[in-house]
Design a binder for these strands. Structure first.
Length: 490
RNA sequence: GGUUCCUUAGCCGAGUGGUUAGGCACCGGUCUGCAAAACCGUUUACGGCGGUUCGAAUCCGCCAGGAACCUCCA
């Protein structure tokens, strides 16, 4: 496993060489979606970011177990019905079983991820399917003395914990400030300190999602599932834990506290956080009501969207920014990404048209090395893409005779695209996704263009322009090149 | 209020103490019956003010503007 992959560890606040605990195996846990609504751009970013990591680690030869949880219980909602389970609330509103809601949105989430060509994780555990593990974990923390029971709920004792460990080491907070600045929330009086957080929450009588526990009927606390399921599937110590920056505090901070309290040590060696997506410079969020679902992007059906954007355009757009930077959405930016992506795809297709020469004027190997350097530098996909654009210029120049490729160069540049564009960055050529019945009508279009060619030969401009203009009106893009006419259906 | 972070050309977005990121748009050119498309070439930059330095957009300080977290969120 010779490589120089370094990744930015939020815990250390610097890039570190990635060294797995048990090479060639790598354990990786990423916070997945809460399935109570349609996936939006904000879900795409971590999914794609850690999909790249998953793919690249495998490319380097690691055997990766990638766990991404499904949150279908637990988190609290902060509006009028404070304290009510998110899933339960939606269920009651629509008179459906909670699990029916979960299944519905999970199916849709999977569909969106498939469209984005995000690989399935190795395991996708549901929080609701791991209640026993979570109860056991809570008991372990209780036994160690870092939690207390209060009116049927169990709370983590932050102050007590902070005497033996340091609460806040991930997010850079200190407990004294937390105690003085945390807002007053419902149920606060049950807690010894406002900074304490729930490990197990007592269910009110009307609460639908509930499970029996040693402390009465209730449901697991907000941060418990990740600790319990991460431990179950990856062990008490594992390599990588990822998620959005918004989860840094309190979610991931609490996870660290839970594992240190229960096991006496950190579970995670490398913490990775992707940055947020903004719309007009402002973060996208449920409470802000400015989020756009992925389906809306794919169909263009949203008032802020000037057109539909294909899944690959979204993927490419996200990869054109580094995962630790915010990326600002706009129609202009997405359209720029779409054009750039199509240019790369076309260049890849055009490799086949290069006529091999006996001498070479290009150095594909150095491009390949630079791409690896970029990937190794904390997954710098924008840089990888910039080198693919350099490769694109070389291909185009080869076609006009301004560069010469040997057969070995042609093979090398094909492999460059296959490795980085398709295998590691997970792009796919969407135009080639058409079904078999496309063949018949595409031959019909070819025939029309042949007629147009004849008309042009006869200088019958009226006929040739009529064919061109009417095909264009139907949505075809007609491209007259030196070696004949090609077309594309937009 | 506390903590953290950001500010790069028309737009998006990398990076670095001294040498062209890249894409899109614009402009010029090639191609074309005319176009479109495609391709080639090219211009515009590092929020402001100080400081460190032979040299800073890159390091430090201050100021301005913006954002995130502290509360569900990817």
């Amino acid at each position: 496993m010779e490589h120089k992959l370094s990744i930015y560890n939020t815990l250390k606040r610097e890039k570190e060489l990635f060294v797995p605990l048990n090479s060639p195996h790598v354990g990786m846990y990423v916070c997945g979606p809460t399935v109570y609504g349609d996936a939006h751009l904000g879900h795409a970013r971590p999914a794609i970011t850690f999909d790249i990591l998953f793919r690249y680690l495998q490319h380097l030869g690691y055997k990766v177990r990638y766990v991404r949880n499904i949150t279908d219980v637990g988190h609290l909602e902060n509006d009028a019905d404070e304290g009510e389970d998110k899933i339960a609330k939606k269920a009651r509103l629509e008179q459906l079983e909670p699990m029916e809601i979960v299944q519905y949105f999970l199916n849709r989430y999977h569909k969106a991820m498939d469209a984005l060509n995000v690989l399935s994780p190795s395991i996708e555990p549901h929080a609701s399917g791991h209640i026993i593990e979570q109860i056991e974990y809570v008991e372990e923390i209780l036994n160690k003395g870092y939690a207390y029971v209060s009116e049927g709920s169990v709370y983590f004792d932050v102050e007590r914990y902070n005497k033996d460990f340091r609460y806040g080491k991930l997010s850079g907070r200190n407990v004294d400030e937390l105690l003085s600045t945390t807002r007053q929330l419902d149920g606060q009086q049950e807690k010894r300190n406002s900074a304490d957080f729930a490990l197990w929450k007592k269910a009110s009588p009307e609460h639908i999602m509930r499970w029996p526990s040693p402390w009465g009927d209730g449901f697991p606390g907000w941060h418990m599932e990740c600790s319990a399921m991460g431990t179950k599937y990856l062990g008490e110590e594992f390599d990588i834990h990822g998620g959005g920056m918004d989860l840094l505090f309190p979610h991931h901070e609490c996870e660290i506290a839970q594992s240190c309290a229960a096991k006496g040590k950190d579970a995670v060696r490398y913490w990775m956080h992707n940055n947020m997506i903004t719309i007009n410079g402002q973060k996208m969020g449920k409470s802000l009501g400015n989020f756009i679902t992925l389906d809306e992007f794919f169909t263009g059906n949203h008032k802020s969207l000037e057109q539909a954007y294909s899944p690959m355009t979204i993927r490419f757009f996200i990869l054109q920014a580094h995962y630790r930077s915010t990326v600002d959405f706009s129609n202009e930016a997405l359209q720029a990404s779409e054009k750039g992506m199509l240019r790369l795809m076309e260049a890849f297709d055009n490799i086949a048209r290069i006529k091999p020469a006996t001498t070479s004027t290009v150095d594909i190997e150095s491009l390949r090395e630079k791409c690896y350097e970029a990937m190794n530098d904390d997954l710098n996909t924008p840089i990888v893409i910039s080198y693919l654009f350099e490769a694109t210029t070389l291909i185009n120049k080869a076609l006009t005779g301004d560069e010469s490729f040997t057969q070995a160069d042609i093979d090398a540049i094909t492999s460059l695209f296959k490795t980085f564009m398709f295998e590691i960055m997970g792009m796919v050529e969407e135009s080639k996704a058409g079904g078999a019945n496309v063949e018949a009508y595409s031959k019909a279009v070819d025939m029309l263009l042949e007629l147009r060619q004849q008309a042009k030969a006869n200088k019958d401009w009226a006929t040739s322009d009529k064919i061109r203009n009417e095909l264009q009106a139907l949505g075809f893009e007609i491209k007259d090149g030196k070696e004949g006419t090609t077309w594309r259906l937009n």
